[in-house]
Amino acid sequence: MNIFRLLGDLSHLLAIIILLLKIWNSRSCAGISGRSQFLFAIVFTARYLDLFFTFISLYNTVMKIVFLATSYGTLYLMYIKFKATYDSNHDTFRIEFLILPAIALALLINEEFTVIEILWTFSIYLESVAILPQLFMVSKTGEAESITSHYLFALGSYRALYILNWIYRWFLTEKLNAIAIVAGIVQTILYCDFFYLYLTKVLKGKKLQLPA
């Protein structure tokens, strides 16, 4: 565990908390992609099955349980409790175009052909693109509420901090996982355009609005 990794995890946790608080306080999930949230729930479920088989640390176990619980909590708020506010007309990204290639790639490129390893690899590939329905929704409506922007910024920061964590670990000559790194870099690149808009607009008090 190094400082980048810890800040990355905390940033990830912060993103999830921002999202839950936004939905809870405004009693609305307008502007949030239920499809991305659904994909994140699949990601955590597929990846954290190792909770049943391996113990890494108390920190690791607690965080996994928190991520699982909050992802299902978010789905509950979006699809049950505040379903009436869910903006499904703008949430139209075809997620089978992400899930099926992630399954295929996990079957082809993995480190070990076992069920648990393939599920882990699938979760890594799927996570790298799971935010696309959300970014697609923002581009479709042409804008995002500030709170949604903060959520996306925290989520993107988590990925960027994980890259710093790998660079740090590389200097310590630790063993690194190539699959996680390549997918992580792809995932971070997806946020670059958003980062630019966030830094140039949202932080200056303007609404995130895409150029027409």
């Binding site: 690791n60 480190e111 996982n177």
Partner: peptide, 10 residues
């Protein structure tokens, strides 16, 4: 497998 890195990341 000992050659694989431990999956300690979230």
């Amino acid at each position: 497998d000992d050659d694989l890195p431990k999956k300690d990341e979230l």
